[in-house]
Amino acid sequence: MRIVIDALGAPAESGGMRVHAEELIRTWTEVFPADELIVLGYSWLEDSFRGVEGVEVVTAKGKAARYTGQIFWTAQVFRRRHADALLSLSTIVSPLVPSDRTACFIHDWRHRLNPAEFGRAQRLYRRLWQLSIRRAGTTFAISEKTRRETERFARPARLVVAENGDDHARRWGVERIVDEGTPTILTFGHFASKRPELVIDAVSVLRRRGEDHRLVVLGAKGDYREELRAKAEVASVSDLVEFPGFVTDDTLHRSVSSASVLALVSSDEGYGMPVVEGAYFGVPTVVTADSGLVEIHGDRVVPAEATGESVASAILRARESGAERGADAHPWSDTVRTVRDSLRARARTKVRGE
Rank of each mutant, 00 (worst) to 15 (best):
S193R: 08
D201H: 09
L252R: 10
R171V: 13
I133D: 02
S255C: 12
R152W: 11
G137F: 00
A154E: 10
R134S: 15
R229G: 00
D223C: 00
V160W: 01
V247F: 09
D249A: 14
V241K: 11
T251I: 12
P244K: 09
S143K: 01
L228H: 00
H253S: 13
E144L: 10
R207V: 08
R171T: 15
R225Q: 01
P244F: 05
R134T: 07
R207G: 08
G173L: 02
V217A: 03
A136I: 03
V174N: 01
W172Y: 11
E144A: 09
S258A: 10
H213F: 15
A235G: 07
I200S: 01
L240S: 13
D167V: 13
P156D: 11
V203M: 14
F140E: 01
F246C: 05
F153V: 02
T248F: 12
D179K: 08
T248H: 15
D212M: 14
R229N: 02
T182P: 14
V199E: 14
E197K: 00
F246D: 02
H213Q: 12
S257M: 04
E144D: 10
P156G: 04
R152V: 06
E151T: 07
V205G: 02
L228T: 00
T248D: 13
I133A: 06
N164S: 14
W172K: 06
D223G: 04
S204H: 10
R170E: 12
L159C: 05
A141S: 04
V217S: 06
V247Y: 08
F191M: 13
H168W: 05
R225D: 00
T182K: 15
E227V: 01
D250E: 12
A136M: 06
L159Y: 06
A136T: 06
S193C: 04
V160N: 03
K221A: 09
G173K: 02
S193L: 10
E149R: 03
F153C: 01
V178T: 15
V199Y: 10
A162R: 00
R134H: 15
G222Q: 02
E175K: 13
F243H: 05
S143R: 03
D166R: 12
A220P: 01
R254C: 10
A141G: 04
